[in-house]
Simulated assay, not measured.
Amino acid sequence: MLTTAFTETFGVRHPIVQGGMQWVGRAELVAAVANAGALGMITALTQPTPEDLAKEIARTRELTDQPFGVNLTILPAITPPPYEEYRQVIIDSGIKIVETAGSSPAPHLPDFHAAGVKVLHKCTSVRHAVKAQDLGVDGISIDGFECAGHPGEDDIPGLVLIAAAAEQITIPMIASGGFGDGRGLVAALALGADGINMGTRFMCTEESPIHHTIKEAIVAAKETDTELIFRPLRNTARVASNTVSREVVEILSRGGQFEDVRELVAGARGRLVYENGDPEAGIWSVGTVQGIIHDIPTAGELVERIVADAESLISERLAGLIGGRATQTVNA
């Protein structure tokens, strides 16, 4: 078993997190990840109301007695969701781990900490990670340029970003973006992280609540099969490469504005991708890690494989490099 500052602080057996994913972080997947000894995250805003979130938390508890958390992504909007109400549901439901993302977690920290909730905050830069640490969060999830969704605007890949963050972060830190196997876990630990966060890899598991055709599309895709949309708007997002995302890139590259692509990027269309299995129906998030995803295991099989491969790499191949002959690397 791999014991790190993250597993000890957040009370899970393995240093692996299933990050919050819109439309994906639901009870079945979260419970399966938790039962495997990793940390699953319900995505709060996938649930249309705070009351629905309370029901989803209760449904997850029917499927696992292991720790799990809730992702609360805080983004600017003309009509923002009732974040305070979602926060209160999390507290009232007895959740003890929250992943925050998007805007600063500062407005939510006093209430969470007063209720004994540990906060893991996702950042895309060292400066934001340091600021979150100074605010008093309990852990950092540092998100490299390889990730699905919003990688920030600095374009720093994980190999540099994780190491740079490790020089300044003293609380538990999880590495996000581009992780999908035991090799990645070992690399993250070597760079100074205390574990890994995976989104796309957990999308491609049996319990993931998305259409099997989309899982097959991820397995078939290469690491180059993504697009960066909204770059000219300074709100970059990495999504699957399809006719819709390529059209969005083309329109914006010609000087178009958000209003010109609003219908193309509507969240309702992306949700239909996951529900109906048509990868061309809309915009949907996926990371470059899809290039090393080759199967659709159960969440439990995936976690067990990653931990076993990481332990083997550390104890056999890497140890063998010191004063002896290197052994053959394990299959990832």
Rank of each mutant, 00 (worst) to 15 (best):
G178N: 05
A240R: 05
E8L: 09
K122P: 01
L233V: 12
I296L: 07
T3L: 09
P110L: 15
M198E: 01
E167A: 14
V265G: 00
M41Q: 06
A115E: 05
T46Q: 03
A27K: 04
E250W: 02
A193D: 13
R127Y: 05
N242S: 08
G139I: 12
V24I: 15
S312D: 10
A240D: 03
I142F: 01
R13S: 13
T79H: 10
P232M: 07
L318Y: 12
A319E: 15
E84L: 14
A31C: 09
G177K: 11
A326K: 04
T4A: 00
V33G: 01
I322Y: 14
Q88E: 13
A58Y: 00
V286I: 11
G270I: 00
E250G: 03
I142V: 10
A163K: 15
K118I: 03
I322N: 09
D65P: 03
G152T: 05
D138M: 07
V186E: 12
I78A: 12
A166T: 11
V289R: 06
V286L: 10
M41E: 01
A114M: 12
I214N: 06
V89Q: 00
A332Y: 15
D143G: 13
E85L: 12
L109K: 08
T3C: 12
H128L: 04
G177A: 08
F112W: 12
V12H: 04
L72T: 04
T9H: 10
R61T: 13
E28M: 08
R59W: 02
G37W: 06
Y274G: 03
T4F: 02
I229V: 05
V289L: 04
L272D: 00
G37P: 11
R254M: 09
G287D: 04
I169G: 11
M198P: 09
P67T: 08
A5Q: 13
M1C: 10
R231E: 01
A217Y: 14
V12I: 09
E247H: 04
A166E: 08
T329V: 15
G69L: 10
S315E: 15
I42F: 01
P209W: 12
S285I: 14
P157R: 07
H113T: 03
G323E: 12
L272Q: 05
E85M: 06
G40R: 03
D225P: 09
L29I: 07
R271T: 08
G144T: 06
T100D: 04
G139M: 11
A163C: 04
L189A: 07
I90Q: 04
E62Q: 13
M173K: 07
H212W: 13
V70S: 06
N242R: 04
V265N: 01
T226C: 12
D278W: 02
H294A: 11
D134T: 13
L109N: 06
A5P: 02
F6V: 02
S253N: 13
V289D: 00
G291I: 14
G177E: 03
V330L: 08
G282L: 00
E206I: 15
E304Y: 14
P107S: 03
L45T: 06
N35V: 03
D278Q: 05
A31Y: 11
T124C: 14
K55N: 10
